[in-house]
Amino acid sequence: MAARVVLALVCLVVMGRLSEAAVYKVGDSAGWTTIANVDYKLWASTKTFHIGDTVLFEYNPQFHNVMRVTHQMYRSCNSSNPISTFTTGNDSITLTNHGHHFFFCGVPGHCTAGQKLDLNVLLPASSSPLSEPPTSSPSPLTTTIPAAGVPGPSPNFSASLPTVAVGRVLVVVALLVTLVFGNFGS
């Protein structure tokens, strides 16, 4: 019985971490675009990004894309050799480690017009970092990426509203119920 209690407590800790993950739609209601004159630097400065958070790039794939690039490429808007390119128009990217993550639109002129984003993911507050990528395969529309490894400005500690990963929480709750009450009579 003591082992079940310990396992239940471990599950609660895991559930707490999973439920803290947030989903951020880049550019909020405007999305990923050049038309709305979104200041993506300002947008990112109002958010606090953590490991496990997801950024969602929504855009018209006929006119835009998303390229993950190095800091040097970001600064010069050089799209010749991106780390990765996303083209679905609904790209969901999970941030798996701390540091800066650099993105821009690779369509000529869009990056220089301001369609670029530098996300600074904070170090985990706990002593056990979550920087390991998940062991299960991500869904086809979800990509996990490491940070670019570039130091950056001081973190912004603005409040953010986390979006609960409901499916994951339900699985953990079901596991807890099974562990604690599954063999109650034995």
Rank of each mutant, 00 (worst) to 15 (best):
T70E: 10
E58V: 07
P82T: 11
Q62K: 09
F57G: 01
V38D: 03
V55K: 01
T48H: 14
Y74C: 07
Y40P: 03
A30R: 09
T34V: 09
T46P: 08
T34G: 07
Q62R: 10
T34F: 07
M67I: 05
S29T: 12
H71T: 06
S79K: 02
A36P: 06
T48N: 12
T33A: 12
C77H: 02
H50C: 06
T33Y: 08
F63Q: 09
N60A: 06
L42D: 15
K41N: 15
H64R: 05
S80E: 11
A44H: 03
N37K: 11
E58A: 13
Y59S: 08
S80F: 09
F57V: 01
K47S: 08
A44E: 06
H71E: 15
A36R: 08
Q72M: 09
W43C: 13
H71S: 14
G31W: 02
L56V: 13
Y74N: 03
H50D: 04
N81C: 03
P82H: 10
S79P: 01
Y40K: 04
S80R: 08
N37G: 13
D53K: 00
D39L: 01
S76N: 12
T46M: 14
V66P: 01
G52V: 12
V38Y: 01
G52R: 02
A30T: 09
S79V: 00
G52D: 10
Q72E: 15
N60S: 11
Q72S: 15
N78V: 04
D53H: 01
F49D: 03
G52L: 06
N65G: 06
P82S: 11
D53G: 02
R68P: 00
R68G: 05
S80T: 08
Y74D: 05
N78K: 00
S76D: 15
T46W: 14
V38E: 01
D53F: 00
T70P: 03
L42E: 14
A30F: 11
R75G: 13
D39S: 09
N65D: 15
T70D: 11
G31I: 03
T54L: 15
N78M: 04
N65A: 10
T70N: 10
V66A: 13
S80L: 08
F49T: 00
S29P: 00
A30I: 07
R75D: 15
P82E: 14
T54N: 15
K47Q: 12
T33I: 10
A44M: 05
N81K: 00
R75V: 14
H50T: 02
K41M: 09
Q62E: 13
H50Y: 05
G52H: 06
A44P: 02
M73E: 15
H71R: 14
D39W: 03
T54H: 12
F49R: 00
S45P: 04
R75T: 15
I51V: 14
K41A: 15
S45V: 11
W43S: 14
T48C: 13
S79W: 02
T34L: 08
N78G: 01
P82I: 05
